[in-house]
Design a protein around this nucleic acid. Structure first.
Length: 276
DNA sequence: TGAGCTTTAAACAGCG
DNA sequence: CCGCTGTTTAAAGCTC
């Protein structure tokens, strides 16, 4: 039985993420994506009943310096149209060549770092086929690189936003996510392991003696939002449980982490839009 | 159950 | 020639 309450996250994370984000969203502006930051109502409000046992872990000696590589991230719930949309919207000039759309997706969704190349074909297929995106010729006088630039057709932008909203909302509350096996958990992406720095240590509260006594591996995942002053995520692994530890005293079990991670991906994807 | 949407794969042409 | 870009078709899976 877990002593941890995910409901704390709803307030903690939401309030942290909303810090410094004053001002009412303008529905006609990019800031209308600020719903992505209001995750207080997107996470389960009631504490989860249990924590997820680790899947058949190999017993490891505490002396082993390196933990096993974490499982690859799961596929983001967003359609290619949504991904393309977010990429373009996140660009300063609201237009991107296909190569930079690839880069944006890879940078924002670790799943695609290791995914086979077929998804790039899908991106191009989407750009070509979807009415939502329009091809514009590059300015030959100053352009470097091949291909055209792609932008979002203004008339389709509200629809794309709505799809993004629905996808986000659905995957933040869908119980199927909670039941997904931990091995498929995206929190522990392949790029997650990194040394715990003193700065990180300061942010971690270790209230459970279980961690201190049984901890066999400890990784951190740099919160993709950390650059924008949001939260720092810390991954703790004991013999029986995996936890995500947030600054302060909020701790999450894997089931909550699953939901949080999806939310973090969405926020990261749209986060910089809010600074425009 | 079916229509529409999405994803994936593949072929092909044009361009640098 | 090669790799990237863009278009198109086809098929399978999924959602409503």
């Amino acid at each position: 039985e877990s002593p941890h309450s995910s409901s704390l996250l709803s307030h903690c994370a939401a309030s942290r993420c909303l810090e410094g984000r004053g001002g009412a969203p303008d529905q006609n502006d990019l800031t209308c994506l600020s719903w992505l930051h209001q995750r207080g109502d997107l996470l389960p409000l009631q504490p989860l009943a249990k924590v997820t046992p680790l899947p058949q872990q190999e017993p490891r000696s505490p002396a082993l310096p390196l933990p096993p590589p974490p499982p690859a991230s799961s596929k983001p719930p967003y359609s290619f149209s949504s991904l393309i949309f977010m990429a373009i919207e996140d660009s300063p000039r609201k237009r991107l060549p296909v190569k930079e759309i690839y880069d944006w997706i890879v940078n924002n969704f670790p799943y695609y770092r290791t995914a086979t190349g077929g998804w790039r074909n899908s991106v191009r297929h989407n750009l070509s086929l979807s009415k939502s995106f329009r091809r514009i010729q590059r300015d030959k006088s100053q352009s470097v690189g091949k291909g055209s630039l792609w932008c979002v057709c203004p008339e389709y932008r509200p629809g794309l936003l709505e799809v993004l909203r629905k996808t986000h909302s659905y995957h933040s509350t869908n119980s199927n996510l909670i039941n997904k096996p931990a091995a498929d958990n995206p929190t522990f992406s392949e790029n997650a392991p990194c040394p715990l720095t003193p700065d990180h240590e300061e942010l971690v509260t270790m209230e459970s003696t279980e961690y201190q006594q049984d901890e066999v591996g400890r990784d951190t995942e740099k919160d993709p939002l950390s650059d924008s002053g949001y939260i720092e995520l810390h991954y703790y692994q004991s013999d029986q449980y995996q936890y995500l530890v947030l600054p302060g005293d909020t701790e999450l079990d894997l089931e909550t982490v699953e939901i949080l991670q999806l939310d973090v991906e969405a926020q990261e994807a749209a986060g910089s839009l809010l600074d425009l």
